[in-house]
Design a protein around this nucleic acid. Structure first.
Length: 187
DNA sequence: TTTGAGATCACCT
DNA sequence: GGTGATCTCAAAA
């Protein structure tokens, strides 16, 4: 993946990540759901400026931002322009199914990576990966090779900025965390 | 099929 | 002390 791919606003990177292949130590699949978070976005961790938790959001593009959610889950983001990032919410599992199933307590294929917390558990991602570059081991991130039909809708689980249509899904995928609400074609 | 409680941490007020 | 980019399980309808 070209470094310039990430050095853009998150709302532009997020739809382009749909269909990309994400692997951690050879375990992963195709990205089917993302959300964009921008510096000027009240729902974003970066909205109020840098803190210890969100430091990597203000670091170099193309790196990981991993944070703890609700005290027990992990959420994996791709850092874009400084202060902006793309939350990877779901994968269609393709590689290392057995490893994912073991980490996820024998969950079925559809629930292995459907949701940011589940995805991190299936791929073995934790806070130790925060700030790591995505172009080196154990990460592998390959751009999608052809066109993809991407739909946009409003984001999940937030109160402020809830109307902003910055959630992107691979149209018709059965592996998204939740079906789209008021979907429309993505730009 | 939908709803609600609980786990538990970084941040903000 | 309250909130949140979540998930699981149990119980009700």
């Amino acid at each position: 993946m070209d470094p310039s791919f990430f050095a853009r606003p998150a709302p532009r990177v997020a739809p382009d990540l749909i269909g990309a292949r994400l692997l951690v130590d050879g375990v992963g699949g195709l990205v089917v759901e993302t959300e964009a978070y921008d510096r000027s976005d009240p729902a974003s961790h970066s909205f109020a400026g840098p803190t210890r938790r969100n430091a990597s959001m203000f670091g170099a593009p193309g790196h990981a931002y991993v944070y703890r959610s609700y005290g027990l889950h992990w959420c994996f983001n791709v850092v874009c322009e400084p202060g902006s990032a793309v939350l990877v919410r779901a994968l269609a599992p393709t590689d290392g199914l057995a490893a994912m199933r073991a980490r996820r307590g024998g969950a079925g294929p559809r629930l292995l990576c459907a949701g940011p917390g589940r995805l991190c558990q299936a791929l073995g991602l934790t806070g130790q990966h925060d700030g790591w570059p995505l172009d080196r081991a154990p990460f592998r991130l390959e751009a999608r090779d052809g066109p993809a039909v991407v739909t946009a809708c409003s984001r999940i689980g937030i109160s402020r900025g809830a109307e902003t249509p910055w959630r992107f899904l691979l149209a018709g995928s059965a592996f998204v965390s939740r079906p789209p609400a008021r979907a429309r074609p993505a730009g």
